[in-house]
């Protein structure tokens, strides 16, 4: 039996919104430590890894491991019926056919209840090795989104170069080229605007902007975003959430031809 109560429905709304264009159907794996989701997009270029820890809920109860196979488009439809400030409770039996969602409005005594049909999904899980990344960049999530959207106007792909001078996002397209460079920056008054670059060796990699712009839909979840890069491994884009929960995206790089 699963019972998980979220103080604010908008956390789940935003998470599902951020990933529903990448993934259509996926399993929410529930166990006593929390709600986890791992799924690749259709073309196996990007991977979403979400963890909503038990601490993010109050209360959280899950006696047995359950996989909730959900169609995200359908879940979005149901979640649309919830207001951002509603209290949201997820409930499911041990071998569930449906996921029960309850929205309680805090202001008045309105209570809405929905059952979402579940499906059997045979999913492949990928093992993600622990990586010591050569470069870790934290920046405001709005800044990252702006860079991606701006460069997307020129080209399909962006090259990200991190060196001791800073991090440079550059692209070349048919109409011309563009580049944005950020340096480490410490804003005492407003630490949310900090740009922080940790570097053990210089890195340069190219990625598809289409995917990055898609990841940026998660910007509303967290004020800052963390990019982790190492040469020849996928990029990690992490949005940290309260209580140790997170929403992570992995993206395979574009590579020059091996021949």
């Amino acid at each position: 039996m699963l019972e998980a109560r979220l103080e604010q429905a908008d956390l789940l709304k935003k998470v599902v919104d951020a990933i529903k264009d990448l993934v259509q159907d996926c399993n929410f794996d529930c166990n006593d430590s929390g709600l986890a989701l791992q799924a690749m997009d259709n073309s196996h270029v990007a991977l979403v890894s979400m963890m909503l820890k038990a601490e993010s809920f109050s209360p959280y109860r899950c006696d047995r491991n359950i996989a909730l196979g959900v169609n995200l488009t359908s879940l979005t439809k149901v979640l649309r019926a919830a207001q951002n400030e509603d209290i949201l409770t997820l409930k499911a039996e041990d071998a569930p056919d449906v996921l029960n969602l309850v929205f309680e409005s805090s202001g008045n005594d309105r209570l809405s209840e929905y059952d979402l049909k579940l499906m059997d999904i045979d999913q492949e899980h990928l093992g993600i090795p622990d990586t010591e990344y050569a470069a870790t960049i934290s920046m405001p999530s709005t800044e990252f989104r702006r860079i991606c959207v701006d460069l997307m106007a020129l080209s399909e792909s962006v090259s990200i170069e991190a060196s001791k001078d800073g991090v440079k996002f550059s692209c070349t397209g048919d109409i011309g080229n563009g580049a944005v460079t950020l340096r480490s920056h410490n804003n005492v008054e407003n630490p949310e605007l900090n740009v922080d670059i940790e570097l053990s060796e210089p890195v340069a990699l190219t990625f598809s902007l289409k995917y990055l712009v898609n990841f940026c839909k998660a910007s509303g979840l967290s004020k800052s975003v963390k990019l982790c890069l190492s040469n020849e491994v996928p990029l990690l884009v992490e949005y940290g959430l309260d209580g140790g929960s997170y929403l992570r995206f992995y993206l395979a790089p574009k590579i020059g031809d091996d021949e």
Binding site: L126, I128, E156, A252
Partner: peptide, 14 residues
């Protein structure tokens, strides 16, 4: 144009 790599090349299925 440079080739998009696939994730399977980096992460192996469990």
């Amino acid at each position: 144009s440079s080739q998009q790599a696939r994730l399977e090349g980096f992460f192996k299925p469990i």
